[in-house]
Computed example of a mutant assay.
Amino acid sequence: MSLPADYFDELFADNDDPWAFRTRWYEQRKRDLTLAALPRQRYARVFEPGCANGELSLCLAERCDELLCMDMSARAADLARKRLSEFPGATAVEGRLPVDWPEGKFDLIVVSEWAYYLEPALFVQVIERIAASLTEDGAVLACHWLHPIEGCPMLGREAHALLAEHLQLLPLVRHEETDFLLEMWGKQPGGIDLDEQVR
């Protein structure tokens, strides 16, 4: 069974940073690596479901014209909304996947540290929504903890295997460490256009 919204509401009830995203070096470094993995300097429209308190969201907002963040915890969505208040193109909403999937297309969808909270069958439904919501040059970036988490239906590696299988996109980036796996897939191969490169 996928973890309910109450689980996350309790985490945020008296702590606006329950995973210490803001203070732990591990989280700061992983966030920097996530941002460095993005091959484009700027994106038009980005979707970040499972945004938590908006720590990564704040960094993504600096790299795109429009950012939509979502979290199933009302408190988390509110915290992210406040963090993003200086960015007019950024929005944070409360919602549950896949039922509250947003309309429109995105050139980047970020799946960071939440897929293992879902049952595999439900996550496959989410992946189908992801694939249908990408622009012609769209990409998906995923990053997940690799160790078991008590109560979670999946491991991070299983979530990435499902993404690779069901997205059926080109692999663009893969970075694995002892603690986490970061991967990116896209509709286009990426890389530098050698014909346009300034010599």
Rank of each mutant, 00 (worst) to 15 (best):
E150Y: 09
P153D: 01
M72K: 13
L3I: 14
L97G: 01
M154R: 04
N15H: 10
W185H: 15
H175N: 08
Q125T: 08
E158I: 01
D107H: 11
L84G: 02
I130M: 13
D16P: 15
R96A: 12
E86L: 03
P171C: 06
R199T: 14
D14H: 12
D9P: 09
L194G: 02
A115D: 04
E62C: 11
T178L: 03
A20Q: 08
A132M: 10
A61G: 12
G95T: 11
W145L: 10
L146F: 02
C51S: 09
L35M: 08
L141E: 08
M184A: 09
A80D: 11
L169R: 02
H166N: 08
D17C: 07
L68S: 09
L3D: 08
A52K: 00
E119G: 03
A159F: 14
R199F: 15
E27L: 06
L122N: 00
A161R: 05
Q197S: 09
F87N: 00
W145Q: 06
L134E: 03
L58V: 04
V110I: 12
L122S: 03
A80G: 12
L170A: 14
A115H: 00
P98R: 05
A142M: 08
D107V: 03
D65M: 02
E136Q: 12
G156N: 02
W185P: 04
R174F: 06
L146R: 14
G191W: 06
A90N: 05
M1P: 15
D65P: 02
D195I: 10
C59A: 15
C64W: 06
A132F: 02
E94W: 03
C69E: 02
Y117K: 01
D17I: 10
C64P: 02
S73V: 04
E94P: 00
R22Y: 14
D100F: 14
E55V: 15
W101V: 11
A121V: 02
F123P: 01
M70P: 10
F12M: 00
P148I: 05
F12Q: 06
R45G: 00
W19I: 11
P120T: 11
L67W: 06
L60D: 08
L155D: 11
R81H: 05
I149P: 00
E165N: 05
R75C: 02
R31T: 09
V111R: 01
Q168P: 05
G50N: 09
N53M: 06
N53W: 03
T178S: 11
D9H: 14
N53K: 03
E103A: 13
T34W: 03
A37G: 10
F21G: 01
F8I: 04
K82Y: 08
E177A: 13
L58D: 11
E66H: 13
